[in-house]
Design a protein around this nucleic acid. Structure first.
Length: 489
DNA sequence: ACGGGACCTGACAA
DNA sequence: ATTGTCAGGTCCC
C-alpha cells in the first residue's frame, strides 16, 4: 500500500435483513436501469463513484471505487458536447490497474486521493439511496392489514424498496420507458452513459460511465444522434427536455421540487462535493406533490405516468402512484376498476381515480406498495411467484403427511410407514409432486414378517391463473404394488 | 374535455 | 420464416 494510491475501498458491510431490502429484486424491478450484475455482485456509477454491492441474509456488503479526480468529475456537468457520433471512451486517460481487475480513471494531475478511508460517507450514501430510515417490514404490515390483496401477493416479494435516485437521471430514464420494455430501456440508458457520460472506471472488463447531466444532452445534434442509436421517437423528447432544463429553468430547479420530508441524496464524498450555488432563487410556491407533478408534465415526453415515476423515485414523493399498463391491469383485476360504465377506457380521469384509490387504502407511501404489486405482476418475476407458491404448496402436502404419520404412531405398532416426497419442476407454472410411500407391515410371529411395499405416486399440477397458483389436478395413481414378500429371519 | 391513432424498436411467441 | 403483439406512454388531432 505504499507507492500507488488506491481508489478502491475495502468491502464494508451494513447489517440488513432481506425483508428490509432485497437488492436482487429492487435493482431489477424497473426503478433503476443502470445496475449491472457481474458474478453475484451489483455495480453502478453513482455520483462519480462505482458502487459495488452484494448481499447475504444478514448484511449488505458494499464498496466504493472512485477516480482521484472525482471532485472534478462531479462538479463538471457541462463540458460534454459530443462532436463525434461515435464518441465513447475518452482515451487519453491514465488508468491504474488494481489487483482485482479494477481500473479507475485517473487524472494525472492529482495522484492524491482524498478519502480512501472515508467509508462512513458511502454508508450514509447507501442509507439515503435505499431510504433505509423507513422500516419496510412495518410498512408491509400496514399495507397488508388494510388490503387483503396486498396481503395475498406480497409475501413472495419482500424487500422491495423505492430507491431515492437522482431526479434528472430518473426523469430521462422514464422518458425512455414510454411504450417500451425494461430490457430495451436499460440498453438505451446505458447508451446515454456510454456516449455522453464521463468514464469512471472498469470492473471485470466492463467499463462504467456516469449518467450525463442536462447540459450534455442539450446539444443541437443530440436528437439525430439518439435516433441513430435506436431511441426512436424518444430522441426528440430527451433532447427537448434537456434543453428546457438546462436553459429555461433556474439552476437547482429539480432539487427544489423535492419532498422536504425526504432529504436529497447524501453526497458520496462526505459533503463538500455538491455545489451549493442554487437555492437563492425565491420559489414562492410551497413544494407539494401535486405542484411537482404539474411542473414535470410541462416537459417534453413527460405525461402523468412518467411524472409520477420521477416524483416517486427521484424526488421523494411517496404518495405518487405511477399508473401504467400493469397497474391498470391490477386495478381492474383486483380492485374492481373498469367494471362500472364510466371508466371502461383509460383516461386521465381514470388515471387519477386509480391513484387516489391506492392512496386511500395504502396511505402516504402508496407508491411504495404499488411497486411491490407491480413487481409481482412483472412477467420476468412470475417464476418467482409460482416458485414460491409451489414451495408453499409442497410444504402443505408435507404437513398433511406429518399429520398422518403422527396418527399412525399413536396406534400399537402394527406397521411402520415411511414416506418420501419428491418435488420436480416441470415448467415455471407446473410442478410435479411425487409421493412415495413405503409401508412395512409386521404380521404373525415375531420371527417372520410380511413386508408390503406400496408405492404411490401423486401428481399435482399447479396451474398459473391470474398469477395465482391453484391446484388444478390432484390425481393419485398407484403405479406399482409389489407382491407380498415373505422373509424369514 | 374526450376518444382514437401514430409513433421507433426489438424481443418473443404463433 | 413472416407476421403480430407487447413493452412501466405521450402527443396530437
Amino acid at each position: 500500500m505504499g507507492g500507488v494510491q488506491r481508489a478502491v475501498s475495502e468491502w464494508q458491510k451494513l447489517p440488513l435483513s432481506l425483508t428490509e431490502l432485497c437488492i436482487d429484486t429492487t435493482l431489477r424491478c424497473g426503478q433503476s436501469f443502470r445496475w449491472r450484475k457481474i458474478d453475484d455482485e451489483w455495480h453502478c456509477v453513482l455520483q462519480g463513484c462505482i458502487i459495488s454491492l452484494k448481499q447475504d441474509a444478514a448484511h449488505l456488503h458494499y464498496r466504493a471505487i472512485w477516480p482521484s479526480h472525482k471532485q472534478k468529475l462531479s462538479a463538471a456537468v457541462a463540458p460534454r458536447t459530443p462532436l463525434s457520433l461515435t464518441y465513447s471512451c475518452p482515451s487519453p486517460r491514465v488508468k491504474e490497474e488494481q489487483d482485482d481487475g479494477v481500473q479507475v480513471a485517473s487524472a494525472s494531475v492529482s495522484a492524491h486521493d482524498s478519502d480512501v478511508d472515508d467509508d462512513d460517507g458511502t454508508a450514509r450514501f447507501l442509507r439515503s439511496y435505499f431510504a433505509l430510515s423507513h422500516s419496510l417490514s412495518a410498512m408491509y404490515e400496514q399495507w397488508a392489514s388494510s388490503d387483503a390483496n396486498f396481503a395475498r401477493r406480497a409475501p413472495a416479494f419482500t424487500g422491495i424498496r423505492i430507491l431515492n435516485q437522482d431526479a434528472w437521471e430518473t426523469l430521462v430514464a422514464f422518458i425512455c420507458s414510454s411504450n417500451n420494455n425494461i430490457s430495451r430501456i436499460s440498453q438505451m440508458v446505458h447508451k446515454l452513459c456510454l456516449h455522453y457520460g464521463p468514464y469512471i472506471g472498469t470492473v471485470a472488463g466492463e467499463t462504467f460511465h456516469d449518467f450525463p447531466g442536462p447540459e450534455a444532452l442539450a446539444g443541437t445534434r443530440v436528437e439525430a444522434h439518439l435516433r441513430e442509436l435506436g431511441f426512436g421517437y424518444r430522441a426528440k423528447y430527451i433532447a427537448e427536455t434537456a434543453r428546457i432544463v438546462a436553459t429555461e429553468r433556474p439552476a437547482g430547479w429539480l432539487r427544489q421540487l423535492r419532498n422536504p420530508e425526504c432529504p436529497a441524496l447524501d453526497a458520496l464524498g462526505g459533503g463538500g462535493v455538491g455545489d451549493a450555488k442554487e437555492e437563492k432563487n425565491a420559489e414562492p410556491t410551497a413544494p407539494s406533490y401535486r405542484a411537482t407533478h404539474e411542473a414535470l408534465v410541462e416537459l417534453s415526453g413527460v405525461g402523468p405516468k412518467v411524472s409520477d415515476c420521477v416524483c416517486l423515485m427521484g424526488l421523494g414523493w411517496g404518495e405518487a402512484v405511477p399508473v401504467d399498463t400493469h397497474v391498470w391491469q391490477i386495478a381492474q383485476r383486483d380492485y374492481a376498476f373498469g367494471k362500472g360504465g364510466k371508466s371502461k377506457t383509460f383516461s386521465k380521469a381514470t388515471y387519477d381515480a386509480v391513484g387516489d384509490h391506492f392512496r386511500k387504502i395504502w396511505g402516504p407511501h402508496a407508491g411504495w406498495a404499488q411497486s411491490v404489486l407491480f413487481t409481482a405482476n412483472l412477467k420476468s418475476f412470475s417464476q418467482q411467484a409460482s416458485g414460491a407458491k409451489a414451495e408453499v404448496s409442497s410444504a402443505a402436502i408435507k404437513v398433511e403427511e406429518a399429520k398422518e404419520t403422527t396418527a399412525l404412531a399413536g396406534k400399537p405398532a402394527a406397521r411402520v410407514t415411511k414416506r418420501k416426497t419428491v418435488v420436480t419442476e416441470v415448467s415455471s407454472a407446473v410442478v410435479k409432486v411425487e409421493e412415495i410411500t413405503e409401508t412395512t407391515a409386521l404380521v404373525g410371529k415375531p420371527a417372520a414378517r410380511v413386508k408390503k411395499r406400496k408405492t404411490v405416486v401423486a401428481k399435482v399440477a399447479l396451474k398459473l391463473e391470474d398469477d395465482d397458483i391453484q391446484v388444478a389436478e390432484a390425481k393419485i395413481s398407484t403405479l406399482r404394488t409389489s407382491k407380498r414378500l415373505r422373509t424369514r429371519a
